[in-house]
Design a protein around this nucleic acid. Structure first.
Lengths: 342, 342
DNA sequence: TTGAAAGCGCTAACAG
DNA sequence: CTGTTAGCGCTTTCAA
């Protein structure tokens, strides 16, 4: 059965295509007589009409599509959403977009891939990019005239809207918390520390908190690998090999913490008995784990929600203007930290 | 800067638009002279040309888009991807699609929502639907002529392609495993048991395994709620209230198991000491948890991969034909089960 | 080997 | 209040 188009509806209702288009789109200047409107609606229903959004966006330049790009910052890892942080975030983005009548165009991207094509290609109304670094790919995007929201990115550019958290402050919060609990030797475990990256900020926060407290930042207390479970386990083993010189650790991502705890257990060690840890993110998972993480809480759902709202808002506004949104952070105390006394 | 279109390229290269289209699409009947071809390519690059995929699909009827629908079977839960199973699955779908040059159009759907519109709307080349039940929504899809792949669904209809697992067998595997370990009273903990649903099959498998072993299926050993962490914890509390009459449990989803373990702990009980549990799915998480789950392993990544391949394969084939793909299951032994002796 | 031209299904001036 | 019509950017016959 050939699907009905707008002109079939027009014929069926005995009106012109534009009339159909008008009633279907509830054009602001609602100048259609109720009677006609009713006839059109009925005809549409009778023919089981569903508009072709491709055609619509071709002529109207609006697609009701939001592109979501998730760069694979960890090379070789194809399973991006297995990181629960992305899952939580995506859930929220999807939900918010859907409530607003938008669909999501989802794509992972290799780091060297052009963001431009995917975006321009599909005529998305806005783009949300998660955790990217400065670079050529981003600059390409400026050629276009669609809003780009950077989530968790330290790209400084008026062109992009950003939404993020105070990573450095969060790290200080975490580190100070440990210090207050009496810990003096505190490990720092994170993914790769890259210029202008989130981990770099957290690293700085850690350093500052240590320094403020008059504590040394020691080379052998630093563990830097990839943001995944596997690395956490590796770090835990390394921790033992290095002689267990710290009583606590600030781990910069919950998913890594999962691995750390596991790696420790494999060696008969326990959190927090043998190592206190404060984590970061507060993904849903971190309350489910055992022990439940004491972690720096960020409102991931809100982050996703704001990202969508920012994009849509910018899309509907004519003048472009830079918006920056920083979400609050707090420590949530659970079971992965013990007081320390020499 | 106005983005270059195909006709800009044509002008720049001094050829016609159709010629440009030919060389850009490497039309099978490659009848373009190398010289012309080169000129076009150069012009395209010079103008930084990126094709408008919307326009392309409007005229060619191919969008290189795959729709992924994830029904919210648990009412009220908006955060679908927070269930790590979906995260793992989606990762694999996204990766496979991307390798093949496809993008994903992602949408959760309320159960009462029409699948039809989203699909038809966007002109997707194929649709993957996760875990749906029979119903009107699905039947609507038949009006279209695009391939639909049902993942983990017991909808029996030649029209749809399906990919799934032997849920009943998996449940038997799990239950028998527990029986072999000496358990006689085995709880069954799952999401809602609906007609033709996955949980129904697992329930049947559980019953059969019990019966085969001459064990009674007892009313008070059954826990049925929702597929989420929270329910797991609830079930654990209920388990205690009911008097801890079982020594083991077959839990039908890893995410629920997370909750069960937690709920038990809250009451000072431990897995497997106080309750052995065999879980189901083997999401990435289940090895990370403590204790690591003994669980029925399914190859989630492969499931996602096959779903995409099935869809693409069907899309490229002219005659429609039904394909059904069942992935193998196995038990992976980890730390959540103890032998039981009276 | 290439070009002209007719759409794909819809929107949005502009007329009437 | 409603209809005509010119595209949106691209593919694809059909001719040349």
């Amino acid at each position: 059965m050939k699907r009905a188009g707008i002109k079939d509806v027009a014929k069926e209702a005995g009106v012109s295509v534009s009339t159909v288009s008008y009633v279907l789109n509830r054009t602001p200047t609602e100048t259609i007589s109720p009677e006609t409107s009713r006839r059109v609606l009925e005809a549409a229903k009778r023919l089981n009409y569903v508009p072709n959004l491709n055609a619509r966006s071709l002529s109207s330049r609006r697609s009701n599509l939001i592109g979501v790009l998730i760069p694979q910052t960890e090379p070789g890892r194809e399973l991006v959403f297995s990181n629960p942080f992305y899952g939580d975030l995506l859930s929220s983005i999807e939900y918010t977009a859907r409530q607003r009548g938008y669909h999501l165009l989802l794509s992972g991207t290799q780091e060297d891939q052009s963001y431009l094509s995917i975006a321009r290609n599909r005529g998305v109304d806005g783009i949300i990019i998660i955790g990217t670094y400065p670079g050529e790919n981003l600059n390409e995007l400026k050629q276009m005239d669609i809003p780009v929201v950077l989530v968790d990115s330290y790209v400084k550019d008026e062109y992009f809207h950003t939404i993020g958290i105070e990573d450095k402050e969060g790290a200080k919060l975490a580190t100070r918390y440990l210090i207050e609990k009496g810990h003096r030797r505190i490990a720092f475990i994170s993914g790769s520390i890259r210029e202008n990256g989130v981990n770099m900020k957290r690293w700085q926060g850690y350093c500052e908190a240590m320094t403020e407290a008059g504590l040394p930042v020691e080379e052998d207390a630093i563990y830097s690998g990839t943001v995944d479970y596997e690395y956490g386990a590796i770090a835990a083993h390394e921790f033992v090999e290095r002689g267990r010189r710290q009583s606590a650790a600030f781990v910069t991502a919950d998913i890594i913490t999962m691995g750390v705890i596991k790696g420790l257990m494999e060696q008969g060690l326990r959190v927090p008995r043998d190592l206190s840890v404060v984590s970061f993110d507060d993904v849903n998972l971190s309350q489910m784990a055992y022990p439940a993480f004491t972690t720096v809480h960020q409102d991931i759902a809100e982050k996703g929600r704001q990202a969508v709202l920012l994009a849509l808002d910018a899309a509907s506004r004519k003048e472009r203007r830079h918006t920056e949104c920083i979400l609050p952070l707090s420590i949530v105390e659970r079971d992965s930290v013990m007081e320390w006394r020499e």
